[in-house]
Structure formats: structure tokens, C-alpha cells
Amino acid sequence: MTALGFLYPGHSAEDDYPRIEQLLGSDIRLAVVHTDIGEDAHRVDALLEMGSPDRLAAGVEEIRRSGAEALVWACTSGSFVYGWEGAHEQVRTLARTAGLPASSTSFAFAHAIRELGVRRVAIGATYPDDVAALFASFLKAAGAEVVGVRGSGIITAAEVGTWGRAEVVALAEAADHPDAEAVLLPDTALHTAAHLRDLESTVGKPVLTANQVTVWEALRLTARRVNAPALGTLFTKEPVIQVARG
């Protein structure tokens, strides 16, 4: 059995993880530990505090007790808000604290883009425009070409967590761009695990969503590959390149 650990901020779409575990259909267990979200706000100062070392460290012992072989900070905005170098330092600190290979959802997106062999991407964010722009800058630092960014202006993860299939599909449709090779939906507060086939069918190209890539990233850290068509192209495509751990 492979056990994977996730630090998830607050309570919004954490039920995506047991759903993904079921869809993986393998000897893989996903352990989700909730961190204190602090102020629920897609605002830079609040996001920096949410991803601070002390808040993440508080959940590490429970992750260790779960027997996890790797750990991912399951938050996009609470990682990319630190910038490319700052997000690397966040992950390095988390790995040292946990004594485990570690990553974050922001790096999961960067690695998943490379896995698919795509370069041009469009972003459909739930965030306000200024926060969405920070994610675009992060992806550009990772070598992606961002051809479109659509923000939704939602301030709280709690509100994002209320969105259903119709809203999620509409976001992907609105964000899509003729030049984009993939569409990215970057909020782990957004329920997407049940809609990945619908999303890809609707836009006619790979769709990467936050909780999907977060689980894929944890598998990557443990060198596990699982073919799971219900989880989208990312979980069926043969690797384009091998990305080093870390």
C-alpha cells in the first residue's frame, strides 16, 4: 500500500480526496489533515499567513502518524502567492519539518503541464483578478505560456466550495482560449473530481484541476503511476519527461 499525505486548508472541497481515492482503484490511501485557514480570504496578506511555516507545521505530526510516504500542501493560492523562489522555500521547509518528500499544489500544476507536454495554457480562477495574475506569473516562471486568465472575483473558499457542476463547467468554458493546449482551474476549494470527464469533453482538451493535480503530484513523489481515466488525461497519458523529485 502507498499512503499519501495532504495538508488541506480549512473545509471546502476536501471530499474530493476520498472520491479520488475511490477512482484510483488501487492500493493507495489518501490522508487529509486540515490546517487552520485563519482569515478565509483570497487576499495576498491572508494567503501569506495561511501558508506560513507555523500553520503548516501544526499538521505534520498527524501526517507522520498516517504513515504517509510523501506530503503535499494542498493549496494553490497559499503557495504561489510567495512567488517562484518563495514557494520553493515553503516546500523545502515543509520537507525538513516532516522528514518526507514534499510539494505543493502550485508545483503540481507546473509538473503536470510538463507531464502533458503542453506549453500554452488558459487559467480559469475563482480568485479576484490580482490573485489570478500571481498564479499566471508563477506558471510563467515555470516555463509555461499563459494565453488567457479569467478571474471570478470570489473572496472566500467557503463560497467556492458551494459551486456545483454547472458553475465549474461554465468556468472552464469561459476560461478556454483557442490557443490554449490545456485549461487550468487552480482552486483546491473547488469541487472538480466528479466532473473531470465532463470538463474535458466540454472544452475538447486536457483540463487540470487543483485537487486532481495535487494527488497526482503526491503519486509522482513516490514514483507511483496509476491509470485512472475518470481522473482525466493527466491520469492516462504516458509520461513525456521524467521530473526529478523535490
Rank of each mutant, 00 (worst) to 15 (best):
G67Q: 08
A74C: 12
A95F: 09
A108V: 04
A112V: 03
S77L: 04
A70S: 06
L24G: 08
S66E: 02
G83C: 05
F109K: 08
V44L: 14
A108L: 03
R19D: 14
T93K: 08
D16L: 07
H34D: 05
A98H: 03
Q90H: 01
A87V: 13
W73C: 01
A13R: 03
L94R: 01
L56D: 09
S77A: 13
G78L: 06
C75I: 03
A98M: 13
A31I: 05
V44R: 10
L30N: 02
H111V: 10
A74T: 13
R92L: 12
H34M: 04
L47N: 03
S52M: 01
Y8P: 00
E21N: 14
T93C: 04
F107I: 00
I113T: 02
L23Q: 14
G51R: 01
E39D: 11
A58M: 04
L7V: 02
F80A: 11
E115C: 05
I28V: 15
A57C: 11
P101S: 02
R55E: 08
Y8V: 11
G86D: 10
A46M: 02
A98R: 03
T76F: 02
V32P: 06
R119H: 08
C75P: 02
A74G: 15
A31V: 12
H88K: 13
L94W: 07
E61Q: 14
G59K: 00
G83R: 06
G86K: 07
A46G: 10
E39G: 13
G86P: 03
I37T: 15
I28H: 02
L56P: 01
A112H: 04
A95N: 01
P18C: 11
V91R: 08
D36V: 15
A110M: 06
A13C: 09
P9G: 12
Y17H: 12
S104K: 08
L100I: 02
A112E: 01
A98G: 07
T105S: 03
D16S: 13
F107V: 05
E115I: 06
P101I: 04
E21D: 15
E14F: 11
E69F: 07
E62K: 15
I20Q: 10
R29L: 13
A112Q: 05
G86T: 09
E69V: 03
